[in-house]
Simulated assay, not measured.
Amino acid sequence: MESLQKIKHRINSVNSTKKITKAMELVATAKFAKIKNKFNDVDVYYQNVQKLFINLIKNSNQDIDKLLNEHSWNFSTKRNLYIVFGSDLGLCGAYNSEMYKTIKRTITDEDILIVIGSKLLSLVNKDGTMHVIQTLTQIGDNPSYDIAQIISQKIYDVLQISLLKSVKLIYTHYVNPIKADPVVKEIFPISLDTIQEMEGQQSKDDAMDPDSFEPNPDVILQNSFTIFFEASIYNALTNAKLSEMSQRRTAMEQASDNAEDLIEELKIEYNSSRQAKITQEITEIVNGSSS
């Protein structure tokens, strides 16, 4: 049985750790609430952009999948471009490891990646088999729209030099405070399945009159890809950051609860050891007086 001094030292040590995890839980809760308010606005913006984009596609005669690849070099193998979203900081449970597992299940040796988040980047670099063409780290707890613009521009740059099979986002979709799932979302090409999926999220009232587009849907569509890509990326980025904060808050809450349970166990052990020591001292006194 450990000495009383050692047990007391362990109690103080765990208590100090609990204070840290509790403080981190409170910080994560405050950041989560702030991003949640922003998330609602971003989601509304994304839904409006998506609605407009669908109406443009339905009223346009252009082959939109060839529109962006018009001047591309034709490589022997078409590749997929994935934009993957992780975190810059740890202590958020299985957030980055689950993202990494989804990436490993999804990509092939021919695919190329844009990685966001230094923690996820370290996992990707350890693998050594993935082709990373750009990284974005230290984007902060409140990422700006500039990040989405940078990624969107990179997509355009890649499309100008290489025929891509697709452009997909892999991010953690926020569902509720206790549930967030990694998802793979295709944003290029705009396939029939993608259009039907987008239409399924809209009502009949969202349909727009073709005459309302000036000068015409074809011209507007050609200039609206940037907005659609940026809105899609910003929506994914906000989802990812909200999920990160939610999982960090949950992880710190569980750590605080575990620390409290461990303190209770150590207190019981301390009291048992103290009682045993007192009993032993009394026994020694009684035996001494008897002799």
Results as ranks from 00 to 15, higher is better:
Phe53Arg: 05
Ile11Met: 04
Ser13Trp: 06
Leu266Asp: 02
Thr238Leu: 05
Val183Asp: 07
Leu113Phe: 09
Thr108Ser: 15
Gly86Ala: 12
Tyr270Glu: 09
Asp109Gln: 13
Arg249Ser: 08
Lys34Tyr: 06
Lys168Tyr: 00
Ile151Lys: 00
Leu121His: 04
Ala259Asp: 00
Asp109Gly: 06
Cys92Ala: 14
Ala33Asn: 10
Thr226Gly: 12
Gln138Pro: 02
Ser13Leu: 13
Gly128Asp: 02
Arg79Trp: 10
Lys104Ala: 07
Asp111Phe: 00
Ile227Cys: 08
Ile147Pro: 03
Ala28Asn: 02
His71Ala: 12
Thr226His: 11
Asn59Met: 13
Ser291Gln: 11
Ser191Val: 08
Ile103Asn: 06
Asp63Ile: 15
Ser272Ala: 13
Thr137Tyr: 06
Ile278Arg: 06
Met99Gln: 12
Tyr145Gln: 10
Lys101Val: 05
Thr250Cys: 07
Val42Gln: 09
Leu262Asp: 07
Asn15Met: 04
Gln275Tyr: 13
Asn55Gln: 14
Asp65Lys: 15
Met1Ser: 12
Glu98Ala: 08
Asp43Leu: 15
Glu264Arg: 12
Asp193Phe: 06
Ile278Phe: 03
Lys66Gly: 00
Leu163Val: 08
Met252Asp: 11
Ile161Trp: 07
Tyr100Asn: 03
Ile103Trp: 01
Asn235Met: 07
His173Cys: 02
Ile7Met: 14
Tyr234Phe: 13
Glu264Cys: 03
Asn271Thr: 15
Pro182Asp: 06
Ser203Asp: 15
Lys22Cys: 01
Val184Leu: 11
Lys126Glu: 14
Ile35Pro: 02
Val27Asp: 11
Thr226Trp: 05
Asn74Met: 13
Ser191Met: 05
Gln222His: 14
Asn235Gly: 08
Leu169Gln: 06
Glu214Gln: 04
Thr250Val: 14
Leu26Tyr: 09
Lys66Asn: 06
Lys204Gln: 11
Asp206Val: 07
Val175Cys: 04
Ile107His: 00
Lys34Gly: 02
Thr106Ser: 07
Gln149Gly: 01
Ser162Leu: 02
Ser152Thr: 06
Asp41Gly: 02
Ser232Phe: 05
Glu230Phe: 05
Ile227Glu: 14
Thr172Tyr: 00
Ile35Arg: 04
Tyr234Asn: 14
Leu56Ala: 03
Leu4Phe: 00
Ala23Met: 04
Val115Gln: 07
Asp193Met: 03
Glu281His: 09
Arg274Thr: 05
Gln196His: 14
Gln201Trp: 03
Ser273Gln: 08
Leu68Asn: 07
Leu221Asn: 07
Glu253Pro: 07
Trp73His: 15
Thr283Arg: 13
Gly288Thr: 03
Pro217Met: 10
Glu230Trp: 09
